[in-house]
Structure formats: structure tokens, C-alpha cells
Design a protein around this nucleic acid. Sequence first.
DNA 1: GTCTATACATAGATAGAC
DNA 2: GTCTATCTATGTATAGAC
Lengths: 183, 183
Amino acid sequence: MADAAQTRQRILDSALELFTERGFAGTSVADLAGRLGTSKAALYHHFRSKNEILAALLDAPTRRFDELVTQAPELTAEQLLGRVVDLTAELSAMAGMLDGDPSVQAAQRERLLDRSRDINEALTAALVPPPGDADARLRAHAAYAAAKHGTLAAVTDLGTAELSPVTRAALVSAALRALHPAG
Amino acid sequence: MADAAQTRQRILDSALELFTERGFAGTSVADLAGRLGTSKAALYHHFRSKNEILAALLDAPTRRFDELVTQAPELTAEQLLGRVVDLTAELSAMAGMLDGDPSVQAAQRERLLDRSRDINEALTAALVPPPGDADARLRAHAAYAAAKHGTLAAVTDLGTAELSPVTRAALVSAALRALHPAG
DNA sequence: GTCTATACATAGATAGAC
DNA sequence: GTCTATCTATGTATAGAC
């Protein structure tokens, strides 16, 4: 009924939905097959394991954030926070799961591939100027949290992952104000 | 070796650790018994089900946040964000799991007790003045995210849930700045 | 109040036909 | 490339002795 690539994508789409709703550990392969209207065996033709489905799902987002980490040193705080807002919105369906579900990180840890913590650390570190006192680190955490989780809340609230320029600007400047010491 | 209340508490402590590490669905009753050095049957003497352990764990935090929701209308934004920082720090071990693990929410949903979304909505709503345009709502989301997730990041970073007055003030003012439109 | 043993269902994964 | 049928391990939960 479909070529391999297409079927593969349908599996990933359903997996993302279910992993988001019930968590990775809370979703069985039978659940997945049920939602797809196929058999479990069919799934195993396209992926070697449930874990591999998760890995395939996380591959793209992880790469996008890794890219941002390498660019981070050259970006201003405003540019960096803007990219965080953009990426979070674009990957909003995934971003909640990425560092929200403990069973996701546990599964990735088994494969020594849990990057989410490193990414978060690298990006907040990039927001702190070289000397970087404790206060500045705190503000960086707050600003990053505002950008990321503020964007997630906004996407949920607005019902769309397409942020208008005005909305984007509001999120970035809110995060930026959290970063800067003086009123 | 111990009276009932004490044993019950030991179970809850271990459960919190494991649920945080591996997620609720990712933790088996056997895992729990293993960490406690007891049998599965012993656990079932103190709790009727795995789900009830989760419910007992979430009971206190949920009540604390519900309290805050009822007080919210009478608080200034600064007071409210301050309370969010305080509560988040105090419950930091729990707060990540509370609205991070999808399997937790799925389990609570079965019992029609998933309050975390309502709480988040009520608190951000309290940050928006009555007319409440779209822009103000966005800033409220960003401010709330800065307070909550900024505090979680800070607690992780500092390695302690006891925030000094200076640290607390820095988090609150960062969140406040995210809330307020003008520099 | 804790144990061993076990019931019963579901988990992830595979075999082999079509 | 998808199916039915099945393997084996593990899941939650219980029975009944101590």
C-alpha cells in the first residue's frame, strides 16, 4: 500500500503522537501498531526495535540543536535567544518530549546518546559573558527557560507552531529582559 | 524493623527517585522493591497499586500549588512569581516529574485527577491584568516559565534546593522583567 | 509486616507463510 | 511488505505461610 520511506514516516508520526501522550515507556509496540492499523511484525520490518524508533525520532531535533550549539559563540544573546524560540516552535511537537520524559532520557542513556542536558548547558553557558559570575548564570538560566518554555506555552496557547513576527519578538524580548540585570 | 508510617515514607522516597530517573511507566514495582531491598508483596501491603504510590507522591505538591491558585488573585505579580520560585525550589525533586513525565499525566488522567495543566493555566492567567491582550498573555507565559524552569535549572546548577535570598531575588526579578513590557 | 511462590496479562521481539 | 502465531521475559497483582 505504500513504499518503505512513506510507511516509515507514518510510523514515526504515530510514534511521536503516542510518545507525547503517554510517554515512551508508557507506549507499547502494540499501541503503535493499533494506531497505525497494522501488525507489530510490520513495524519490526521497518525498525529493529522500539528504541530505534525513538532514536530516529530524536535524530533531527538533536542535530538542529547541536548546530545551534556550534554557532552559539558567534551569536549575540538576542540572536541566540531568537534561534531558541524559532527552533523550539518548529520542533514544539518534539521539544516537550525531548527533555520532558524521563524514560526518553533513560533510553538514550543506555545508548550513551543523551545530548539534551549537554545542549541546554552549552546554550545557557553561551549566554553568560566570559567572567560569568553566579548572578549572570542564574539570569542565563531564567532567560533560556523563558525562551524555551515560554515558547512551548505560547504554541500550546495559540494552537499553532507558526509564530507571527510580533509573537516571536515578544518572546525574544521577554527572554532578553530576563537576561539583563538593570531595568 | 519499622512501623508502617516510616516504611510508607521509605517507599515514597525511593519511588520519587526512580520515577524521576526512569519515569513512572519506566519504573516497575520490582525495580522499587529492589531499591528498597524488600519484596514486591511488601510494597503491596502498604499501597494498593503502583498508581496509588504515584497519587500519594503527588498529593502534597498538588495541594500546595492549589493553595497558591486560590491566593493568586490577591497577590501582586512580584509576590506571585516569588511564591512560584519558592514552591518550585521546595518541591524541585517533584516539580520536574509533576509536569514533565507524560506517563504521570496519563496515569492521573485515568483517575481524572490531572491538575497540573489547570494549575499552570490559572497561575499564568493571574499574571495578566483583566483586559489581557495577546501580548500580555505571552509575557505571562514567558515570566512563569522563567520563574519555574529557571528555578529548576538553578537548583540543578547549584546542587541545592535551598535558595539564598540573593538567588531568589535574582530569579524573581528576571521573571518580573520578562513580564513587563518596557525596559 | 514481610516473605516465597505464583497467577495472569502484556511486554518486546521473531518465525515463517503469503 | 504484511500477516498470524508464537516465544520468552517481564509486568502488576495476589495467595497464603511465617
